[in-house]
Design a protein around this nucleic acid. Structure first.
Lengths: 117, 117
DNA sequence: ATACAACCTAAACCCAACTTCAGGTCAAGT
DNA sequence: ACTTGACCTGAAGTTGGGTTTAGGTTGTAT
């Protein structure tokens, strides 16, 4: 069990962000003792997934949906699987975009260098 | 020469966005005839660069800076080159991040599928 | 018992990047 | 003359993802 401060240090995320995530429902089953949040391995795993889904372009409200599916159990396997499949497609598209951008950047870098002669 | 409507269709960007970019100074030398914007090849090229720099994570105000450097001529080659070098580094970091995310997504996809048995 | 750090809340605020709104101009067709 | 469509403006509104503020509680060390 960890406090919010420990998790903040562990993930290098501001405490305010963790509280915001909690308020947005990203830790559906999180326990408290006399009001104080208790982050367990479940929430740590959740945070890894949150970071990943965020970077794949998912919005907070859709991440909340995912976390609720997780909390609901086996009935939602199909939904979760579909979500990851969509994220995979999104990431693949992002990568192709980045490759194109990289090509343009490299070209620009080259032409800036040449014009400089 | 193109109107804002033609450029909007060409780049699949809302007219309001193009006007916003203009207001933010992303087309420093753009001409007008009786108040109406005239997009030329220069602005089209600028838009390609804008899309690219945006996707690399650059903010509007920094893109404006770049466009002003372009308008200023040879004295700013070094600055522009450095900017592209930084973008290249940023894109490379983004790609590594995406690879890591993809690995997690693939793992999750696999484990969701397995738990479903 | 008192000081202190680390926690808590609700509500207000912030920021970038747009988008919408209300009202106006202008050129072409009928 | 007048309607229509495509353009224009400044200002206000929206959205997403937080951060800050103000005031309050808890737990441990002295």
């Amino acid at each position: 069990m960890y406090t919010i401060g420990q998790i903040s240090a562990m993930f290098n995320l501001p405490i305010s962000t963790l509280r915001y995530y909690d308020k947005e429902g990203l830790f559906p089953g999180m326990k408290r003792t006399s009001g104080i949040r208790q982050f367990s391995d479940i929430e740590i795993e959740a945070l890894h997934v949150i970071e990943c889904l965020k970077k794949s372009g998912l919005e907070i409200k859709d991440i909340r949906q995912f976390m609720f599916w997780c909390a609901e159990g086996p009935a939602t396997y199909e939904n979760r699987k579909k979500l990851f499949e969509n994220r995979k497609v999104a990431l693949e598209a992002q990568m192709r975009e980045l490759e194109k951008n990289m090509a343009m950047i490299k070209f620009k870098l080259k032409s800036e260098a040449e014009s400089n002669q």
